[in-house]
Each structure stands twice: as structure tokens, then as C-alpha cells.
Amino acid sequence: MSQLRLEQVAIRYGQTTAVHTVNLQVKQGQIACLLGPSGCGKTTLLRAIAGFEPLSQGSISLNGEVISSAQHTLATEQRKIGMVFQDYALFPHLSIADNIRFGMRKQSRKAQEQRVKELLALVNLAGYERRYPHELSGGQQQRIALARALAPKPALLLLDEPFGSQDTELRESLAREVREILKQEGITALLVTHDQHEAFAMADEIGVMQAGRLQQWGSAYELYYQPHNAFVASFIGQGRLLSGRLQAGNVLTSLGELTYAAHEDLAGATVAVLIRPEHVKLNPIATQRALITSKIFRGNEYLYSLQLNPQESLLALASSEEFYSIGEQVGVELAPRIYALVIRDAN
């Protein structure tokens, strides 16, 4: 059963359109993510789901009930949607226990106590009831913010850049932790982030957004290996696009003929192929030559930038035991197992 459903959702402010006709569904118990660069409309969409922004078009429904449409916006407090904000937004005048209890005031005192205890144990902060937010570290504050949002058992949990103010190194492990907590609670969640590692670590399904449009919806694996368009290809992971022409089931590129593994038959069309750096091999005796324009040391590997011809370039990962200098010409070839990845709109 589909818990959250967005149909033809558009959000406009006067002349500018922040979100264009977005359709998406999140199933019960799934963790979904909206991923995209800043200003792509992902936060606006999240706020619309929370009820902070009215829709210009389309509808949002939760458990089959329409909560937002162009005509009507159900008040935030009546939606049973929890939210974790980027800056946590803990109530500084309330103790940790009172913060968590805040959304449960219709329940009995005993039920509240019980739930507070349970949640503090869940987020690994048992015994912190009487502390105040300013006495906690950033990471602890975040877990309290999560516990507070979970306390009333919302039908859906929204997380707005939940790890945005953490150190980059910490984000992935925190994302993993939060995922565990959400899965234990069995809650349906939608997260917004610009960091793909965070998205990969946390989400079951990811929607890539750009310029107010949902570019692609799928698992991390699908986004990485089967990007639908140039934006998704360049935004997720690293790599370069080679232009090519479809011919008899294969793609003709400047690196030769590549096996075609794409979704639709577009024979004769001009397309682009995404080449990931791990699929490029540097081979001194290969006939296809490229110029090394820069290199970055990555520990066990070097990441080389290669100029193939005046229009096209490649990235290549090679063991740091091999050694090439900038300005050197090297031979390149593609790993034999590679599929050619076809991008629909070759622009």
C-alpha cells in the first residue's frame, strides 16, 4: 500500500515555479530521499508535504486522504506528519523529556513517561531526561530532535537536511544510525539532502531533483548504473559523457563500438554514454591515446583527467603504483565487462 502519494504537484510563487508537476509514491515503512543541488526545489516540496507551502496544482495524499490540493491545505498540526529540521529546532526552554513529550499532550502522563523512556533508549541517550538542549552536543541534539518527532508516532516523518550541520566524515555513519532507528520504529520517512553518500546510506529509494523537476526515481543502484539523463549521470558519482550513435544494437563512440544495454530502441539516434572512472584502464600499448591533463592522489589510486580529443575527456582511476605524469600521452581502453549507458537526451 502506498502511504504517501504526490500527483502532478506544482508549486509557484508569482512568476517563478519552484516545483514542476512532480509525481511520486512512498510505500509503508520505506525510507525515501529527495536528492538534488541546493535550489532544486526539494525543500519546497518537503515543506509542501508538511503543510507549510500551499500547492498551485496537483494533490498530496497520505494513507488515501488528500491533505493538500490547489484548493485546500490541511493545517500542519492536523496532518500527523513529524519533521526533523536541519538546525534541530529543539525548544531551549524545555528539558529533554519535555521536548520529547511536547507532541503527546493528549496522552496520559504515564504513557508519556513510558514513551520518553523508550525513545531515549532508542536514540542511545537514556538518562538525559532532565538535561537541557544547550547542554548537549550537536549529534545528541539531533537524536533528541528525532526522538521528539517520533514520539507522537506520526504517519510520516520528514527530515530536512538532517545531517547538514555535521562534519562530513560523520554524516555517513550518522545516516546509518538514523536508518536503524527509523527501521526499528517501522516508520515511513522522506529525507531531503544534497549529499549522495547520505542518501545512499539511508534511503531505500531516491528521487533526484533538479530545476524543480523530478529527474529520476529509483534505488541507488539504478541511479548509478542506469541514469535516465545527463543530469543524473553527472550528479551521481563521477564520470564523463562520450557522445555516440546507435547502430545495430551497439553504440559507436570515439572509443570504438560499445555494447548497448539501454531501455528503448533508438536506432540511429545520437546519444551519450556515461563512462565511470573505474571502467577506464590505462594501458601503455593500447592504440587509443589520451593526454593526461591533471591527476589527484587518492591513496591507493590516482584519479587522472584525460583529454581524448578536443571535445571529449575521460576520468580514470589507476593504481598509484603505476605512475604517469601530467602532459604524458597514455593508451586507454574500457573494461571489457562494461555496459554502455545510454542517456536519452544527449545535450
Binding site: A50, G51, F52, A75, T76, E77, R79, I81, G82, M83, F85, Q86, D87, A89, L90, F91, P92, H93, F102, G103, R105, K106, R148, A149, P152, P154, L158
Partner: peptide, 27 residues
């Protein structure tokens, strides 16, 4: 006041006036 603090109280079931009396005023 962080506008998020007011918004978060809305997601926790307060209407505008409850938000004022329970969060904005104490802060």
C-alpha cells in the same frame, strides 16, 4: 526566534495560537 522552532511545534500538533503560548512566548 528560529522560525523552525515555531514550525516544529506545528508538526507536533499545535495550532498558531498554541504555538505562540507554548513556544514563542516562553522563549
Amino acid at each position: 526566534q528560529s522560525i523552525c522552532v515555531l514550525e516544529v511545534s506545528r508538526t507536533l500538533g499545535c495550532n498558531q495560537w498554541q504555538s505562540f503560548f507554548r513556544v514563542a512566548l516562553p522563549l
